[in-house]
Amino acid sequence: MSTPLLRLEGVGVTYGSGATALAALVGISLEISAGEVTLLLGPSGSGKTTLLQVMGCLLRPGQGRVVLDGRPLETLGAEALAALRLAHVGFVFQHYNLFPTLRAWENVAVALDLKQVPRNRQNAQAMHLLDKLGMGDRASHFPAELSGGQKQRVAIARALAGSPNLILADEPTAALDGKTGQGVVATLHDLAHRENCAVVIVSHDPRVEPFADRVLHLEDGRLTDDRRAAGNQA
């Protein structure tokens, strides 16, 4: 096994302070490697989203350290964290978070623009990514003109812009029907294996499990289970 892409050591996150302080994450240590799909399970309020934010360099934990691609995060400021996200992380959100005024391909092109892809190549690269997700023929549609599953595919195409090595998806199937949701997860699974990137999916959806290489359980902010999936489809 290669060196881990992401390492968390004794990570703790506390929201608020004093009487209202709430420990959302407690003593989390784990490693995430390229080429696998990790499924993050746990009851509502157990800290899954918080953990994803820590992994995605959106939230600096109060305790412990986070090392992404060999770089410890604790000394980085907001702009440096943003730069790290831009370079390494692709996000997929429950509510897609597409830019509603931009066409499908333009949504992807903005992410490419952020990654300094030259303007004259943005259209072609965006089209390539949309094609990969089977959305090539919808490239000129606005998000409002797409179904939920189609929107999520566009969002994944956007997350893939610039080939990040860590893809973080928070409940990517929650707003989709079972079959569509499964398709989306299958796509993420394919990506992890074909492009050798690490994929972390937060989900309540049992239909996601067959696509996971590894399953983590969170409860009250603590890691209670970490196992290799037996019957994954890889």
């Binding site: 005024t101 931009l102 333009e106 092109a109 903005v110 259209n123 949309l130 490239a139 000129s140």
Partner: peptide, 21 residues
């Protein structure tokens, strides 16, 4: 409706700015 391969003259921040307005 424009075809999938179409280019808009605006990209990036200019595109976002123009569409926002």
């Amino acid at each position: 409706m424009t075809g999938p391969g179409i280019r808009t003259p605006l990209l990036g921040t200019s595109l976002l700015a123009w569409r926002n307005l």
